[in-house]
Design a protein around this nucleic acid. Structure first.
Lengths: 333, 333
DNA sequence: CCCTAAATTGTGTGCGCTAACAATTTTCTC
DNA sequence: GAGAAAATTGTTAGCGCACACAATTTAGGG
């Protein structure tokens, strides 16, 4: 059986409260007493029961991280950043996968407390504002990325501006037939809308007439569906001069399709992605992308979350993370 | 304030125990009572307090998943499988990163209970048998992959046999100068040892003399360090006929280096990886690899873990997951 | 040295839940 | 329809911890 505070107290010859004081370090404890208690804890291999502490304190010390698709490199890198920053601050992280299911997103947001977590960092895809009662007291939530309505504190990269800048960069050497890969067929995700919007804004600035046939839809943002979508597109359309993929993962799928068809990148077509994922840096050719500091996202998300946990009433905060266009081999020339 | 069982009981006109019975579904409850209780729960938006339940039951319903490097696609895919299988069985998953630090691995293994988790799935890299007292009662632990000594239940792919088979496959068209990328310089990981062993066994079978200069060391199993290690290697050595990378991530880094130097794959050199990660499937050229069912790993790991949680005394179990060599474009011809 | 104030430690309680056990109601048997 | 068994519901208690509060010890001032 595991040792409890009582056992430690008995062995150290003090009261349970003193043991608690030693652990929490708020109430002062004399040096000799502290030493005795610490020794007793070591001898009994005492490990505090976090369920009991959680029940007593009303906080578990765990935060939730909910992402649409855990299998992507982007999820992996964001998870790593969040876990590392959280650990530095004494938090544990519980991961959840939403599968881009609006019900699941909503459930996680409204019923977070059921999951033994004190707060939630959620990367929503299709979260509908209507799904969440505005008046209802939500648990502390920080959203990652774009949303159609400001429901909670949020950390984001300006996808619209970044997509616009990327499109302009792709157009610079005189390319005009620039395709976009990643618009959704059915229900639009906020992120897709932003990126498509930035892309279209850039074309308009450049005086390039809108051409629906350059929008390649792809509902699942994975290499597999991107590869397939691009393949089908190329069967029916002439090769564009450039291809802006809404994520690096899709770009990786696209590069594979282009390579299989003998299309040279960037000679025949320039390709760009979004997210600056490690595997994009080492793609063949290395991938031009929109880069941003994932560690900064984690730091800010944790900051907003802890602030929200200590004060549920202050105004919603919005933190923008800087991005930059990184031109690599896939769009040079 | 959140509603408790008491509140629900009062509203439904029953005792707290009956509410508990309705939730847990073990003790029978009459249909009308159940209905009243369920309605009261809905009206009060009742969410059970998992800290209290955990304290009472001695189990939190959370398992830990500890991986060496959360940023890799392999980690992402394993995490996804584990999370999905765990959710199907009603478990939540807390993620941890060991950073291949033996102290961290040991700490997680021996002090798991501190982290509010009922069991741990750990992918160890350098776990030393000496670090864990054999006699000490460990929390329920399932290890993923290779270890130098059987400390706990384990799910694994036969890395030795797979590496041997892959080396033989690379050699089939008459290639003899086959390099291996991923041996460690200092402290050897069990996985690296197994894969290097299988590679060497294959060469021996083929009657190819051992050539130390074909072992390319790379301590960090990332695309970046693989790319760098291979670059430095090629500066000093002639191009091998084939390159067996111990992970797909390293292979992706290697492909980038080869491409930058104008080395054609597979015409000038065949390349293979290990893990069958999505991004490898879409690499340019698509990557030959050792494939295995990650979902099966998750299922078996969860099975062993739950079995161990219900009976701490039975003999350690060992589950082998089948693998197969998948030849793609990076090694054809 | 005594008295007061400050520093330190002890006592009691309840967080929300569910298990053992007890009490009650319903159902069945003859 | 009485008695007993079965089904259902209620009562009590405590999981381990940390808070409010009380009691004790120590330090400081005259």
């Amino acid at each position: 059986m595991r040792a409890t505070v009582k056992d430690v107290a008995r062995r150290a010859g003090v009261s349970p409260k003193t043991v608690s004081n030693v652990m929490n370090g708020i109430v002062p404890v004399s040096a000799p007493t502290r030493l005795r208690v610490e020794q007793a804890m070591a001898e009994l291999d005492y490990v505090p029961n976090l369920s009991a502490r959680g029940l007593r304190n009303g906080r578990s010390g765990v935060i939730g991280l909910a992402l649409p698709d855990l299998a992507t490199p982007f999820s992996a890198e964001i998870s790593q950043s969040i876990v590392e920053v959280a650990h530095e601050q004494g938090w544990s992280v519980q991961i959840e996968e939403t599968g881009s299911d609006p019900h699941r997103e909503q459930e996680l947001m409204t019923r977070a407390r059921a999951n033994l977590i004190d707060g939630l960092i959620l990367n929503p895809v299709v979260l509908k504002e209507s799904a969440v009662q505005v008046g209802v007291a939500l648990p502390p939530v920080v959203l990652l990325g774009e949303v159609t309505q400001q429901l909670a504190d949020r950390v984001f990269v300006d996808s619209f501006a970044a997509a616009r800048d990327m499109t302009l960069a792709l157009a610079r050497p005189g390319r005009r037939r620039i395709a976009a890969l990643g618009v959704n067929r059915g229900r639009q995700s906020a992120t897709a809308l932003q990126r498509a919007g930035g892309y279209e804004a850039a074309l308009q600035e450049l005086g390039i007439a809108k051409d629906e046939s350059l929008l390649i839809s792809c509902d699942s943002w994975t290499p597999a569906s991107a590869a397939e979508a691009l393949g089908e597109y190329l069967d029916a359309h002439p090769l564009p001069e450039a291809l802006f993929c809404f994520t690096d993962s899709m770009a990786i799928g696209a590069l594979n399709t282009l390579w299989k068809r003998g299309v040279r990148v960037p000679e025949d077509i320039a390709v760009a992605g979004f997210d600056d994922v490690i595997d994009g840096r080492f793609a063949v050719p290395s991938l031009t992308t929109v880069s941003f500091d994932k560690r900064a996202i984690a730091t800010e998300a944790l900051r907003l979350l802890t602030e929200r946990m200590s004060d549920r009433s202050h105004a919603q905060q919005l933190v923008e993370i800087e991005y930059r266009i990184v031109e690599r081999d896939s769009s040079r020339g």
